[in-house]
Amino acid sequence: MKQDDVPEPVDARLGRRLAELRAERGWSLGDLAERSGISRSTLSRAERAEISPTAALLNRLCHVYGRTMSRLLSEVEEEPAPLLRAAEQPVWEDRASGFVRRSVSPPHPGLRGELVEGRLAAGADIAYDRPPVSGLEQHIWVLEGGLAVTAEDVEHRLDAGDCLRLRVAGPTRFRCVGGTRARYVLAVVLP
């Protein structure tokens, strides 16, 4: 929320989309809470844009709805185009964790691949309890700083220029290591 308690336009659109996805399935807040492991009150507040959802919360909802975070975020953007200029690329921030996500690829529901720029503040640590889509392929290319990525209980330490490829089936963790922020490109390919 902004300081004056007026939701950011993207938060309001995201809240509406989350409510639509739940309604499309005929689920109550209780049904969604049971499926996602997120409290009904938190879900309700996210749908009403009273809170800006964290990356971990959105990841859980994406898992339940069977879509990537990029797809969900692209669904709340105005008009997808084949060319997305740098100044027009949607940026979403998880203020609680120090994570900033830029959707680099022009969104398109029929395509399986997408590019995302991630930035983690020094010391930031994000854990996802499950992938948004099981079997998701990810390529993580570090541009600046250091990043520790944990998947299947194996930690991979990446420095600038390093690239890790993995297929995500369980919990993952992204941790900024070192005294400066980490900036990386995440290439996501749907199974």
Rank of each mutant, 00 (worst) to 15 (best):
G37W: 11
I38R: 00
I38Y: 00
I38F: 01
S39D: 06
S39H: 03
S39R: 05
R40N: 09
R40P: 11
R40L: 11
S41G: 12
S41L: 14
T42V: 14
L43Q: 05
L43Y: 02
L43C: 07
L43W: 00
S44N: 14
S44P: 14
S44L: 04
R45V: 09
R45T: 13
R45E: 07
A46C: 14
E47G: 14
E47L: 03
R48T: 15
R48Q: 11
A49V: 01
E50C: 11
E50R: 05
E50A: 09
E50N: 14
I51S: 10
I51F: 06
S52I: 08
S52R: 01
P53G: 12
P53N: 03
P53I: 06
T54R: 02
T54A: 09
T54Q: 06
A55M: 11
A55L: 13
A55F: 11
A55W: 03
A55S: 12
A56L: 12
A56F: 03
A56Q: 06
L57F: 12
L58G: 04
L58V: 07
N59C: 07
N59F: 01
N59M: 04
N59W: 00
N59E: 06
R60Q: 09
R60K: 08
L61A: 02
L61R: 00
L61P: 06
C62Q: 02
H63W: 04
H63R: 10
V64I: 10
V64Q: 06
Y65M: 05
Y65T: 01
G66S: 09
G66E: 15
R67L: 12
R67W: 04
R67M: 13
T68N: 12
T68F: 05
M69E: 05
M69L: 15
M69Y: 15
S70V: 08
S70Q: 12
S70H: 08
S70Y: 02
R71K: 11
L72S: 02
L72E: 00
L72P: 00
L73W: 02
L73R: 01
L73T: 02
S74N: 15
S74G: 13
E75M: 08
V76C: 04
E77I: 09
E77S: 07
E77P: 10
E77A: 05
E79A: 15
E79H: 13
E79K: 11
P80I: 10
P80M: 10
P80C: 13
P80A: 13
P82D: 14
P82G: 09
L83N: 09
L83Q: 11
L83M: 08
L84C: 14
L84P: 06
A86N: 07
A86V: 07
A86S: 14
A87F: 03
E88V: 07
E88P: 02
E88M: 07
Q89T: 01
Q89A: 08
Q89W: 03
P90H: 03
P90D: 03
P90T: 05
V91T: 10
V91R: 12
